[in-house]
Amino acid sequence: MLRYFFIGFSLLVLLIVSITGFRGWKSKRPPIEIFPDMVRQAKYKAQSESDFYADDRSARQHVPGTVPLGYSSPQVYQPDGPHHDASSAGDVMGDAGPYGHIEFSASPDYVATGRIGNQWGTGIPFEVTAATMKRGRERYNINCAVCHGAVGMGNGIVSKYGLNGIANQQQQRIRDMADGEIFNTITWGKNSMMGYASTIQVPDRWAIIAYLRALQRAEHATLQDLPEDIAKQYQKPSIDNKLPANLQ
């Protein structure tokens, strides 16, 4: 009798396992939530869906004429005002310096537009330190290198998959271009390149430009540009340039 019980029991286990499967198996079924009232509370979290608004978004689009939280409020543009030249950028960045807080600025200043008056300005609007360059390199490699390539030759990986016409940043035209115009290209894009206003913070855009300038300079660098102690490593060993005797 026990034998029949064990046979029946094994069959039952087999049946359950064949229906429910094992841990880690892929499934399209959403996880069960038995009492979901506290688990999914009646509130919106970031990027969640809304059944109240017609477009299903809980995150609302900007209302024209308003300034979203976290953006600096536009200041009245004064042609000779204190916010006008690059050296006063610290005011706009706040006391905490360029990385003290998140910046997606909407102000009309040079730091946020690349323009001084009606013209492109040039120069990085805060002090460029080794940390800025490191940050710039990191951001460049994340955001730009996929298309423009690690040294800006326009040969990033996507150029091999059918994205044509990526600008070569080593060309003379871009070497001569004002920093402000490059800032504008990063922010709003240019022709077939899209802008990065929504993903790269303002100080990071400047850090990228600083790094881009370094890439451009490095492309035509000579030994004399290196600090002496580093240059030494790259000097050819000082053997005289005569061919060995048997080849003369």
Partner: peptide, 14 residues
Amino acid sequence: YYFTPKYTRVGYQP
């Protein structure tokens, strides 16, 4: 085996 997130959640692939 079955009543923990190790089974109910791991592998969820919509």
